[in-house]
Amino acid sequence: MKLTVVINAAPSSQAAWSAYQFTRTALDAGHEIYRLFFYADGVLNSNALSVAPQGEFDLVQAWQTLIAEHGLDAISCVSSSLKRGILDSQESARYERSGTSLGKGMTLSGLGQLVDATLVSDRVVSFGA
């Protein structure tokens, strides 16, 4: 099946890990992940500048690895992201900020990408906290 996973929870909440675990398991079971959509506090999963405490699972890094391994389409909602300091080089230049933070393999885009995902996907699963 074609699945889209919506992540509304920050990596500090277990819900974000659940979303990651669900995505991995779905891929292992042979399903297609049409899109990962990070929304609200969920965009903090896209913050490549975060550093996990030593000995703790680095969820932000794990997402990037999963996205790279499977060539997943991963969208970080642009308005949620800007508000939380998740910037790519274009937005960083536009708002004259000192750096970029968007994780590798992730793209800033709007809610239209979520609507598109609902049209194309067989199932949409949300994780919130």
């Binding site: 099946m1 669900f22 398991t25 079971a29 399903h31 067989d122 949300s126 994780f127 919130g128």
Partner: peptide, 19 residues
């Protein structure tokens, strides 16, 4: 298990997350 979770999502018409 998580494998069952994925199956449940596929078997039902939609899922609703309560948090």
């Amino acid at each position: 298990s998580y494998t069952d979770f994925v199956k449940l999502v596929c078997e039902h018409g939609r899922s609703v997350s309560w948090f």
